[in-house]
């Protein structure tokens, strides 16, 4: 883990105006959960839409998208990545530092609110289940979006298409695609860890663990390989 890269990445991420977009979504989710709870609604009625529909389906992937593409994609965009690349560092070290920062920040801004919602709905066990599942999801999503930053010039757009079209639209229409959806596997993990009736999934636990690992390792490996062959386009003037 290269602390110099991690700290510059973190400062770059927190310093960008984009980072402010991270705050409203989790706050809205928490606000809605608190409102539902204080109005006396039964958790069985509001956990589905707020945790499944908003938290895992929107807050987690959108946070991961902003952060995951922000740690490397923005540096490629503005050219500052050249400063890191002209160092005798194994490319693995650069990607792992970026991934650690991205996963950490995503887990913080998406995982903590989900923990609080779980705590509110049922108790510590559901909160922890949601938190651990969110951390695993952060890792898988960030590895994917990090790889996208190196595979395409428009990682945010492609990432958004994955979240909206593949996970959102197809995941609802064709049940089979759910197996290859990070979102659905995160729900399965939360279900397995919390054992709560409020969060239910049809995907088996070993499959969910395997899928998350495949996304995380595959994305990381792809990103490292692409960074090794990173090209800067020729003549600019």
């Amino acid at each position: 883990m290269n602390l110099t890269i991690a700290s510059i990445t973190l400062r770059g991420l927190l310093g960008r105006a984009r980072f402010l977009f991270l705050l409203p979504l989790p706050v809205i989710m928490l606000g809605l959960a608190w409102l539902a709870d204080s109005l006396g609604a039964a958790p069985a009625d509001w956990v589905g839409p707020i945790v499944g529909g908003l938290g895992v389906a929107v807050v987690l992937p959108v946070m991961a998208l902003i952060v995951g593409t922000g740690v490397l994609g923005s540096e490629i965009d503005d050219g500052t990545v050249v400063h890191i690349l002209t160092k005798p560092l194994p490319r693995r070290e650069i990607i792992l530092a970026k991934l650690a920062v991205a996963t950490g920040v995503t887990a913080l801004v998406a995982g903590i609110p989900l923990f609080l919602v779980g705590l509110l709905a049922e108790g510590v066990r559901l909160g922890l289940g949601l938190f651990v599942a969110a951390v695993a999801g952060s890792l898988a999503y960030c590895a994917l979006f990090l790889a996208l930053s190196l595979l395409t010039r428009r990682p945010v757009l492609v990432g958004l298409a994955y979240v909206l079209l593949w996970e959102g639209l197809l995941g609802n229409l064709l049940k089979g695609t759910r197996l290859l959806s990070i979102q659905q596997n995160v729900v399965a993990l939360a279900d397995a860890i919390s054992g709560s009736d409020l969060v239910k999934s049809t995907i088996s636990t070993p499959f969910a663990v395997g899928a998350v690992v495949v996304f995380a390792v595959g994305g990381t490996w792809l990103a490292i390989d692409r960074l090794r062959s990173f090209s800067v386009a020729g003549e600019t003037s």
């Binding site: 510059i8 400062r11 770059g12 310093g15 503005d78 050219g79 500052t80 050249v82 400063h83 002209t86 800067v232 600019t236 003037s237």
Partner: peptide
């Protein structure tokens, strides 16, 4: 290498 693009981390 000093590249032509004037890209620096301005916050440092």
């Amino acid at each position: 290498l000093v590249s032509e693009r004037e890209a620096v981390h301005g916050f440092l």
